Deep mutational scan, measured.
Amino acid sequence: MPVRRGHVAPQNTFLDTIIRKFEGQSRKFIIANARVENCAVIYCNDGFCELCGYSRAEVMQRPCTCDFLHGPRTQRRAAAQIAQALLGAEERKVEIAFYRKDGSCFLCLVDVVPVKNEDGAVIMFILNFEVVMEKDMVGSPAHDTNHRGPPTSWLAPGRAKTFRLKLPALLALTARESSVRSGGAGGAGAPGAVVVDVDLTPAAPSSESLALDEVTAMDNHVAGLGPAEERRALVGPGSPPRSAPGQLPSPRAHSLNPDASGSSCSLARTRSRESCASVRRASSADDIEAMRAGVLPPPPRHASTGAMHPLRSGLLNSTSDSDLVRYRTISKIPQITLNFVDLKGDPFLASPTSDREIIAPKIKERTHNVTEKVTQVLSLGADVLPEYKLQAPRIHRWTILHYSPFKAVWDWLILLLVIYTAVFTPYSAAFLLKETEEGPPATECGYACQPLAVVDLIVDIMFIVDILINFRTTYVNANEEVVSHPGRIAVHYFKGWFLIDMVAAIPFDLLI
């Protein structure tokens, strides 16, 4: 008679799926529990143990900040960024110097990925580790590398530091407007667009060049630039800015003055950032001319202004700041037409079709709590990747769950009947059967004279019903998954307890 339990259901295979997918890609990662103190490590794979030199037993239950890997060259700011990422709910990448158990130093890129439950609360953290440099290539500990984003994938490793954006290309926007319009339909740009040429040739750093990471940081200074100062900065030398009595002219307006920039070969870094931020506020060169004239017309309804409409929906549905990093990277690809469009465009503009998908598509409701890094690593669709929660398995109709209350009560009843059979069957065979043979035949009273025979008949009927119930009862397979398919249940029961239950259900007393 089957006594099969499996009270692990309803099970959740999400954690096993993450481990299996990460292991298949030869990654070095740990999984931490966000619900406990210090976000203790609950799993670390073999790749991480080989990377740091510690065994799994030495890593388990330690804080996922990996303070046991810190050393003299470990930056405090990087460690603080990892700790801050564990307090938030967004994906974050941090470069930090770690030390192995043998004392060797290596520069590592740590990717902190939160995993949320159905309520939107962070319950786990996945920390992925990628070695960037070994100890002989690690720089000085005073050099802070965590304020910069990861290198873009479309640049060669040897040319990542030679990417320079020439400031004269930004200063000569109005001069290039006529050349853009003359391109017409034969050019790649839309009317009114501004073409910015980027020099990728390796050259020595000069005062006129600005690194790509500095251009990325310009967006942080746009908020500090007032509207009046932006307007004066875009007017140009024809209309000098008016300053109040006793007030000095704005240095932001002076930063885009061609006369002032041409007199000296070098520009201050602050002026460069502010000038680029001011130019980015204009949607095209037409807006710059309109600002000089004193009238700013409404933005025209053409394809170039609607190019950012799908980007707005993608940004609203993005799951991490990696989408913004990807957008900034692609927006700086050289030799393309940049349409400086305000994100607050007309909502009635139709979304044009684009061959290049900048932001990841909208994630469906079932995966809105899973970050983009987890979705990318697992390579699963929205119909396959579940949320991290207890999910009731989908069972067929008329199927009994093996952990249901009805099955528990039924098993206790069958257990009592088995005990009765084990006690009274030998007793009936030894004593009652002998008395029946010696006594007179009682054929007239039937079952009324033999109450134990009636009980034995009921017990046999219950055993037959138990066999039928076992054909529709779920079970737990070797992978700790609840199986509810009727065919698989029948095959599993035939290979197991079916023969024993059938022999126990045969009414031998009635056959004798």
Results as ranks from 00 to 15, higher is better:
residue 86 L to H: 01
residue 60 M to I: 15
residue 123 I to V: 09
residue 274 E to L: 14
residue 10 P to I: 09
residue 351 S to L: 05
residue 165 L to Y: 14
residue 23 E to D: 09
residue 203 A to T: 04
residue 36 V to I: 07
residue 239 S to I: 07
residue 239 S to W: 04
residue 185 A to D: 14
residue 59 V to Q: 01
residue 212 L to P: 12
residue 91 E to I: 11
residue 84 Q to S: 13
residue 140 S to F: 13
residue 10 P to E: 13
residue 218 M to C: 15
residue 12 N to L: 11
residue 364 K to Y: 03
residue 275 S to K: 05
residue 333 I to H: 14
residue 44 C to T: 06
residue 67 D to E: 13
residue 378 L to P: 04
residue 25 Q to F: 06
residue 10 P to A: 10
residue 133 M to P: 15
residue 318 S to H: 08
residue 301 R to G: 14
residue 131 V to Q: 15
residue 112 V to W: 01
residue 3 V to H: 15
residue 256 L to S: 14
residue 185 A to N: 07
residue 68 F to K: 01
residue 335 Q to V: 03
residue 40 A to Y: 06
residue 89 A to W: 13
residue 350 A to Y: 01
residue 115 V to M: 10
residue 311 L to R: 14
residue 268 A to F: 07
residue 115 V to E: 06
residue 384 V to Y: 06
residue 190 A to T: 14
residue 135 K to T: 05
residue 245 P to F: 04
residue 240 P to S: 09
residue 62 R to C: 07
residue 278 S to V: 11
residue 216 T to A: 10
residue 333 I to M: 15
residue 276 C to F: 04
residue 139 G to E: 13
residue 51 L to R: 01
residue 332 K to N: 08
residue 328 R to Y: 04
residue 53 G to P: 01
residue 190 A to G: 09
residue 350 A to P: 11
residue 44 C to R: 01
residue 369 N to P: 07
residue 146 N to F: 15
residue 77 R to T: 13
residue 83 A to K: 08
residue 317 N to W: 09
residue 153 S to T: 15
residue 318 S to Q: 14
residue 102 D to P: 01
residue 379 S to P: 04
residue 346 D to T: 05
residue 165 L to W: 11
residue 317 N to I: 09
residue 193 A to W: 01
residue 246 G to S: 10
residue 217 A to I: 10
residue 206 S to P: 15
residue 72 P to C: 02
residue 66 C to I: 08
residue 262 G to W: 13
residue 256 L to P: 08
residue 208 E to R: 06
residue 112 V to P: 01
residue 61 Q to A: 11
residue 161 K to P: 08
residue 112 V to G: 01
residue 255 S to Y: 05
residue 318 S to K: 09
residue 21 K to P: 04
residue 256 L to N: 07
residue 122 V to I: 08
residue 154 W to D: 15
residue 115 V to C: 08
residue 55 S to W: 01
residue 379 S to C: 05
residue 274 E to S: 14
residue 325 V to H: 08
residue 44 C to G: 01
residue 3 V to T: 11
residue 22 F to P: 02
residue 56 R to K: 06
residue 26 S to D: 15
residue 25 Q to W: 13
residue 157 P to W: 12
residue 386 P to A: 05
residue 330 I to G: 10
residue 148 R to D: 07
residue 204 A to F: 15
residue 149 G to Q: 06
residue 158 G to W: 13
residue 269 R to Y: 13
residue 118 E to T: 13
residue 55 S to R: 06
residue 226 G to M: 06
residue 262 G to F: 04
residue 14 F to G: 07
residue 84 Q to F: 08
residue 50 E to N: 12
residue 321 D to E: 11
residue 193 A to Y: 01
residue 359 I to P: 14
residue 327 Y to L: 12
residue 299 P to D: 05
residue 90 E to Y: 13
residue 325 V to Q: 14
residue 299 P to C: 12
residue 75 Q to D: 15
residue 260 A to C: 13
residue 56 R to P: 09
residue 11 Q to L: 11
residue 293 A to H: 07
residue 239 S to A: 08
residue 194 V to D: 01
residue 327 Y to F: 12
residue 331 S to I: 01
residue 145 T to Q: 11
residue 73 R to V: 09
residue 194 V to C: 07
residue 132 V to H: 06
residue 289 E to T: 08
residue 236 G to R: 09
residue 338 L to Q: 12
residue 211 A to M: 15
residue 293 A to G: 10
residue 34 A to E: 01
residue 264 S to V: 09
residue 263 S to C: 07
residue 14 F to Y: 07
residue 230 E to P: 06
residue 266 S to C: 07
residue 263 S to L: 09
residue 278 S to G: 09
residue 280 R to K: 07
residue 195 V to C: 03
residue 55 S to I: 01
residue 67 D to R: 05
residue 284 S to R: 03
residue 273 R to V: 12
residue 260 A to T: 12
residue 236 G to S: 08
residue 279 V to F: 13
residue 184 G to T: 05
residue 305 T to R: 12
residue 60 M to T: 01
residue 93 K to H: 07
residue 363 I to P: 13
residue 31 I to C: 04
residue 336 I to D: 09
residue 24 G to I: 06
residue 189 G to E: 06
residue 167 L to M: 15
residue 285 A to H: 10
residue 217 A to N: 06
residue 208 E to T: 10
residue 121 A to N: 05
residue 326 R to I: 04
residue 314 G to I: 05
residue 33 N to T: 09
residue 295 V to L: 15
residue 119 D to Y: 06
residue 266 S to K: 08
residue 95 E to H: 06
residue 264 S to Q: 07
residue 141 P to E: 10
residue 132 V to W: 04
residue 311 L to S: 08
residue 261 S to D: 12
residue 276 C to A: 03
residue 294 G to P: 14
residue 142 A to R: 07
residue 20 R to W: 06
residue 39 C to G: 08
residue 80 A to M: 14
residue 350 A to H: 13
residue 314 G to R: 06
residue 113 V to R: 10
residue 151 P to I: 14
residue 262 G to P: 08
residue 146 N to W: 15
residue 148 R to W: 07
residue 129 F to D: 01
residue 207 S to K: 11
residue 80 A to P: 01
residue 221 H to R: 12
residue 124 M to N: 06
residue 370 V to M: 14
residue 49 C to Q: 08
residue 294 G to K: 12
residue 147 H to R: 07
residue 121 A to L: 06
residue 81 Q to T: 13
residue 49 C to E: 05
residue 180 V to N: 09
residue 113 V to F: 13
residue 247 Q to L: 07
residue 307 A to T: 12
residue 221 H to M: 15
residue 360 A to I: 10
residue 220 N to Y: 10
residue 331 S to G: 08
residue 215 V to A: 13
residue 168 P to C: 04
residue 217 A to Y: 06
residue 215 V to S: 15
residue 305 T to I: 07
residue 243 S to E: 15
residue 55 S to G: 09
residue 73 R to S: 14
residue 177 E to N: 13
residue 337 T to L: 12
residue 356 R to V: 12
residue 285 A to I: 11
residue 35 R to S: 15
residue 197 D to G: 01
residue 137 M to T: 15
residue 106 F to E: 01
residue 145 T to V: 15
residue 86 L to M: 10
residue 115 V to F: 13
residue 309 H to F: 14
residue 344 K to Y: 05
residue 275 S to N: 14
residue 328 R to M: 05
residue 46 D to C: 01
residue 112 V to A: 02
residue 57 A to H: 09
residue 133 M to Y: 07
residue 321 D to C: 15
residue 160 A to C: 09
residue 251 P to R: 11
residue 375 T to Q: 04
residue 349 L to F: 15
residue 43 Y to I: 01
residue 277 A to R: 06
residue 179 S to D: 11
residue 88 G to S: 14
residue 72 P to H: 05
residue 219 D to F: 04
residue 74 T to S: 01
residue 348 F to N: 04
residue 68 F to C: 01
residue 197 D to E: 01
residue 46 D to R: 10
residue 241 P to A: 13
residue 143 H to Y: 14
residue 76 R to P: 15
residue 218 M to D: 03
residue 4 R to G: 13
residue 311 L to I: 07
residue 81 Q to K: 11
residue 353 T to K: 13
residue 170 L to R: 11
residue 347 P to S: 05
residue 22 F to N: 07
residue 210 L to T: 12
residue 219 D to Q: 04
residue 311 L to G: 11
residue 154 W to S: 14
residue 51 L to V: 01
residue 343 L to S: 15
residue 17 T to R: 10
residue 312 R to V: 11
residue 257 N to H: 03
residue 345 G to I: 04
residue 236 G to T: 08
residue 221 H to N: 06
residue 378 L to Y: 03
residue 210 L to G: 06
residue 77 R to M: 14
residue 83 A to M: 13
residue 18 I to C: 06
residue 173 L to E: 14
residue 365 E to F: 09
residue 151 P to V: 13
residue 24 G to Q: 13
residue 49 C to H: 01
residue 324 L to V: 14
residue 107 L to P: 15
residue 127 L to K: 01
residue 42 I to K: 01
residue 161 K to V: 01
residue 41 V to W: 01
residue 309 H to A: 12
residue 237 P to A: 14
residue 217 A to P: 15
residue 131 V to C: 12
residue 309 H to V: 09
residue 61 Q to E: 14
residue 195 V to D: 05
residue 317 N to P: 06
residue 308 M to K: 14
residue 8 V to C: 08
residue 101 K to D: 01
residue 254 H to R: 05
residue 47 G to H: 09
residue 247 Q to S: 15
residue 49 C to A: 06
residue 219 D to T: 05
residue 113 V to Q: 07
residue 276 C to E: 10
residue 164 R to H: 08
residue 246 G to W: 05
residue 165 L to C: 11
residue 357 E to N: 15
residue 272 S to M: 09
residue 183 G to M: 07
residue 230 E to C: 09
residue 355 D to A: 14
residue 66 C to S: 01
residue 13 T to N: 09
residue 195 V to A: 06
residue 282 A to K: 14
residue 372 E to A: 10
residue 43 Y to H: 02
residue 152 T to S: 09
